[in-house]
């Protein structure tokens, strides 16, 4: 029996009558993590990890009842025994373990296996069937060590300071921004120079602090005076700020973009920034394979990303593999489609 099926609203568990990261309002949702394409609004009841409760509440709105479940603690929902296990993607990101009559499925949401100072590390959970993402499901994607990437960011910032220009770093507002802050804080100490953030990041960064994550001090860009010494500052901004009038206040600046996609030269050039830092909150190819192997699952279902590639690879390794294409955006940029005139 399939413990999880694909419906129009997203992944659904019939035994427990709940959805995982549904794309539209449902009565009962289990939310793996707080990224906008996974945590949507309008649900009746939401279950998420205790670690992620703060930021999940920011995303799902005040309406739903929100139940925060500690790591590994079982919760009976209908005929399904549900527990949440760390996915290592961002603060509070969870894998959902579902057990019905001795059959175990794990839906991983988004995950990475490398350590991240801002969230609990990925925990391998044994399962009969494992549902995995495949955002970076190609062998070209192999991440450099995070320590090295953060050190590169720090020296980039210091070189910009020496050249009297601001350092503007475009990053995801949730997860990556805080991971970078924590990394720089550890490397440079609390006294690392002014770090200023875009308005889109303040509430989320404060939520991380409230959850007990230690981050260096940050100031809100719009709260600072015009003559602030921007040329000494590191500015964290969401990618959508690139090229907007908001950037004018910084005067001379160097810009950079932090994302797994920056591994590829063409993507780096298309971004049109001075520098690309390879830093992703998703598993790279070796990470995906390692995580899948650790579950000892005989059956693997692949969601968003390089679905046909990973399915074929796993099948060639002798696993029962299939596609389960839920429409998440992953780390892809969201693009708007052209409207077509009527014929």
């Amino acid at each position: 029996m399939d413990l999880v099926t694909l419906t129009e609203a997203g992944l659904y568990c019939p035994a427990g009558d709940f959805f995982i990261d549904p794309a539209r309002p449902v009565a009962r949702a289990v939310i793996t993590h707080a990224h906008a394409d996974h945590a949507t609004t309008g649900h009746g009841a939401v279950l998420c990890s205790a670690e992620g409760a703060g930021i999940t509440r920011l995303r799902v709105g005040p309406q739903p009842t929100l139940e925060a479940l500690p790591w590994g603690e079982p919760r009976q929902i209908g005929d399904a025994r549900v527990s949440l296990h760390p996915a290592g993607h961002i603060l509070g990101s969870a894998q959902v373990r579902i057990e019905v009559a001795g059959e175990v499925w794990v839906a991983s949401g988004d995950y990475k296996v490398e350590p991240d100072p801002t969230c609990t590390a990925f925990e391998p959970v044994q399962a009969h069937t494992f549902i995995t993402e495949s955002t970076f499901g190609l062998p070209v994607y192999r991440w450099p060590a995070q320590r090295q990437v953060v050190a590169d960011m720090a020296s980039w910032w210091q070189r910009n300071q020496a050249a009297d220009r601001a350092s503007v770093l475009f990053v995801y507002a949730l997860g990556k921004a805080q991971r970078i802050l924590a990394g720089l804080g550890t490397l440079l100490g609390d006294d690392c120079g002014p770090i200023v953030v875009h308005g889109a990041m303040t509430a989320l960064t404060d939520a991380y602090r409230a959850a007990g994550v230690r981050l260096p001090q940050t100031s809100l860009v719009s709260a600072l005076p015009k003559d602030f010494p921007w040329h000494q500052a590191l500015v964290l901004a969401p990618p959508s700020a690139q090229g907007t009038p908001w950037m004018r206040r910084f005067g001379a600046y160097a810009d950079a973009y932090a994302s797994g996609w920056m591994l590829v030269r063409g993507q780096r050039r298309r971004r049109a920034v001075d520098r690309g830092f390879v830093l992703s909150d998703h598993a790279d190819w070796p990470g995906l394979l390692q995580a899948i192997e650790a579950t000892r699952a005989q059956r693997v279902l692949v969601t968003h990303g390089q679905v046909p590639v990973l399915v074929r690879w796993l099948a060639e390794q002798g696993l029962q593999a299939g596609a389960l294409e839920a429409g998440y955006g992953g780390e892809q940029e969201l693009e708007t489609a052209v409207t077509v005139p009527d014929a």
């Binding site: 190609l138 062998p139 070209v140 994607y141 192999r142 591994l263 590829v264 030269r265 063409g266 390089q306 590639v309 074929r312 690879w313 060639e316």
Partner: peptide, 25 residues
């Protein structure tokens, strides 16, 4: 890189540059 030809081709299609695909693999 110890990968089958089809996986090399998929990688090449995603990277869009033969020399770089090889360097990454």
């Amino acid at each position: 890189a110890r990968i089958p030809a089809w996986l090399f081709d998929e990688s090449y299609e995603a990277v869009g540059d033969l020399a770089e695909t090889i360097a990454l693999l």
